[in-house]
């Protein structure tokens, strides 16, 4: 071992300008090395053979979590730091749970939030949570800055709308109203180090009278891209999460999904679990909302 990877050049970049210019200079042969937990595995397997790796891990704008109403998470913030951040845990619980579900502690100390989005696995654990939190991604490329709702980042499995030379700079989460709770449930064979059969995130904001003022449901691993099931959230809005409202949300989420059968489980099972987990995630999110 040790020689399985192709030979390449490695360069640390100190600023975002440098990163974007260097990526744009040779978009086909250059890759951004974030946590490396996917990229280095792909390279060791011979699936990717870049000529050059750019390491921007010391670029200040790409690092850390800051808060001024909006929560800003730099794209290269480690999954472990997302998972342990007190504000993420209290106000964006689903995201803390999604980050916790990624790989092992070792992986989470390397893997980055932006990397998890950029790799664009349909089964990734953080996108459903970010979708229910109404996350916006800030991109920076040769043509400047643009901001997209997270749902618009994805084109298909492993594919994003990032242009050549364009990078994810940060993820921004708006402040949610009081009495908001969120929850993420991952269904997999093992309790850790596994890929989701199904991932479901929910966010619930309660009104004064205890009815649902706003709700979101998002799904992972049951469509080519992580998916916001808008009609599932709408189905419980105005309700007190009675059985009929939850059943309608479950139906809507199942209808929004388009799962496949693979070695992990069947499409029928995935679709059925979308229904079960949608109800469960909405109830858990509401239970948290009541406490806040």
């Amino acid at each position: 071992m040790g020689t399985a990877m192709n030979a390449f050049d490695y360069e640390r970049v100190a600023t975002l300008d440098e990163l974007v210019a260097a990526l744009a200079g040779d978009p086909d042969g250059t890759r951004l090395l974030a946590g490396g937990t996917d990229l280095l595995v792909f390279m060791a397997d011979g699936k990717l053979a870049p000529r050059k790796l750019l390491d921007p891990k010391r670029v200040p704008e790409l690092n850390g979590i800051s808060h001024n109403g909006t929560l800003r998470i730099g794209a290269l913030t480690r999954m472990r730091d997302v998972e342990l951040h007190p504000l993420v845990r209290s106000r964006y619980t689903a995201l803390a749970q999604g980050a916790f579900e990624v790989g092992s502690v070792q992986i989470r100390h390397r893997a980055t939030l932006g990397g998890n989005l950029g790799t664009a696995s349909p089964a990734a654990d953080t996108p459903p949570a970010l979708l229910v939190h109404d996350a916006v991604v800030k991109l920076r490329g040769p043509d400047g800055v643009r901001k997209l709702p997270l749902g618009e980042l994805y084109r298909g499995p492993g594919q994003t709308v990032l242009a050549p030379g364009e990078v994810i700079v940060a993820v921004k989460l708006p402040e949610h109203p009081a009495r908001t709770g969120s929850w993420y449930i991952k269904l997999a064979t093992r309790k850790a180090m596994d890929i989701a059969f199904v991932g479901v995130a929910a966010r619930v904001t309660l009104a004064e009278d205890g009815r649902v003022a706003e709700a979101r449901v998002a799904l992972g691993a049951v469509a080519p891209v992580p998916l916001l099931a808008a009609e599932a959230g709408a189905a419980v809005t105005g309700s007190r999460l009675e059985d009929a409202a939850l059943a309608a949300a479950a139906e809507a989420a199942m209808a929004a999904s388009s799962p496949i059968s693979d070695k992990r489980c069947s499409a029928e099972y995935r679709r059925a679990m979308v229904g079960v987990l949608t109800k469960r995630a909405l109830r858990q999110a509401a239970a948290l909302a009541e406490k806040r």
Binding site: Y10, G36, T37, L40, Q106, H109, R110
Partner: peptide, 13 residues
């Protein structure tokens, strides 16, 4: 101080 998999990190990093 962070536990990491040294098979997934380059020495130069």
């Amino acid at each position: 101080g962070r536990p990491i998999n040294s098979c997934l990190m380059l020495a130069v990093e």
